[in-house]
């Protein structure tokens, strides 16, 4: 997959204003970013930095006030509701901090739901769902409801669900935020494995420093702008003194 690296996400001079009472607050002040297919990117930054906003733009969940976001060279602000739904269904897999599985459904049904939306037949979807759950290490527990699973297991189901329609991009919003250290590390490991083996682009917004070790690049956001972008080789030097990095959580 490395021979034809193409840009999967292109963010061009994106600005975003939010109304706050009578004022408007400019949360993003012109962000340019290019993400290549198959990359593992972490977006880091303190809360309130515009990290989540940028993340939502990339995911097609929010539209920029100014500027453009291209996913696979398609300007997503040009898409209608139907095309956006299609984009979310096939191109992007979402992973949330709070797992957000549908509590009414079993693990397997949660995983097969996006496939149902995609028009896949029931039996095919079941097979693929079980295969995906095995991939994330939950082969035997597919008949359990989310509430019968631990946090880490729920997040694994969510990861399996995000892979349902073989998306090009996985968007992970603080995927380890609600997990303890070791479970979080396992989830990061799993994401890294998926990115390496399946060539999925993983983009995660996080303030978990464990993410740094596996990221190909880290985008640091401060005050609505990109502070700096570091490649992994540059990062390794600073891993030892990670607490000295600017913007460390208080």
């Amino acid at each position: 997959m490395n021979d034809e690296r193409h840009t999967i996400v292109r963010v061009i001079n994106v600005k975003k204003d939010f109304p706050l009472g009578r004022q408007t607050v400019r949360v993003l002040k012109g962000v340019d970013l290019e993400i290549m297919a198959g990359e593992y990117i972490s977006i880091m930054g303190p809360s309130g930095s515009g990290k989540s906003t940028l993340f939502n733009m990339i995911g097609g969940l929010d539209k920029p006030t100014d500027g453009k976001v291209f996913i696979d060279e398609v300007d997503i602000s040009q898409l209608d509701a139907y095309e956006l739904a299609w984009l979310r269904n096939r191109k992007i897999g979402y992973i949330f901090q709070t797992f957000n599985l549908i509590p009414v459904m079993t693990a397997l049904e949660n995983v097969t739901l996006p496939m149902t939306f995609a028009g896949m037949h029931g039996d095919d979807a079941q097979d693929k769902g079980i295969e995906l759950l095995k991939l994330v290490g939950l082969g035997e527990r597919f008949q359990h409801k989310p509430l019968e699973l631990s946090g880490g297991q729920q997040q694994r189901v969510a990861i399996a669900r995000s892979l349902a329609n073989d998306p090009a991009i996985i968007l992970a919003d603080e995927p380890t935020g609600n997990l303890d250290l070791s479970t979080g590390a396992e989830i990061i490991e799993l994401l890294k494995m998926l990115s390496a083996e399946r060539g999925v682009t993983v983009i995660s917004a996080t303030h978990d420093y464990k993410m740094l070790n596996v990221s190909d690049r880290v985008v640091w956001i401060r005050d609505g702008m990109i502070d700096r972008i570091e490649n992994r080789d540059e990062l390794d030097i600073s891993v030892g003194g990670i607490t000295e990095v600017e913007g460390a959580p208080a």
Partner: peptide, 17 residues
């Protein structure tokens, strides 16, 4: 544009349903 790279799986239709 989306069609070109999407829909790789078997039995998947174009529509959201």
């Amino acid at each position: 544009v989306f069609d070109a790279s999407g829909g790789s799986g078997q039995g998947i239709q174009r529509a959201i349903s």
